[in-house]
Design a binder for these strands. Structure first.
Length: 104
DNA sequence: GGAATGACACTAA
DNA sequence: GTTAGTGCCATTC
């Protein structure tokens, strides 16, 4: 907390860098922050105070799963589809995660 | 100050 | 390839 930006604040900052049509895994964000706070990242999104400013819907699990969303998983899937992310119509999983993943 | 929780990840069977 | 169990981090009660 004494830091300039809290951990969750840094997560939002990275999320803001994600362009439309790209997705990132919680592990990538945590790794970018210099650690493996996968769960901490997710917690930050759970506390996401600005769903408009932070595209938390562009964050998916490392295995390609959509994971969850504050407004509802189905809403997240719909948003990803609208963004242009290719998802599996059977399980709603990200297709070619490595190719659609945004490299920081 | 300590314990419990959670929008996850990884390894093993 | 799938399922189960365990570990990690930061935040919150």
């Amino acid at each position: 907390m004494d830091s300039n930006k809290s951990f969750n604040q840094q997560c939002y900052d990275l999320l803001r860098q994600i362009p439309k049509g790209k997705v990132v895994t919680y592990a990538d964000i945590a790794h970018q922050l210099g650690g493996k706070a996968y769960q901490a990242v997710g917690n930050a999104m759970a506390s996401n105070p600005d769903v408009i400013v932070v595209p938390c819907h562009r964050v998916v699990n490392s295995n390609g799963a959509i994971g969850k969303y504050a407004l509802g998983t189905d809403k997240k899937i719909a948003l990803l589809k609208e963004e242009g992310i290719l998802l599996n119509a059977d399980n709603n999983k990200v297709v070619d995660l490595d190719k659609q993943r945004h490299n920081f």
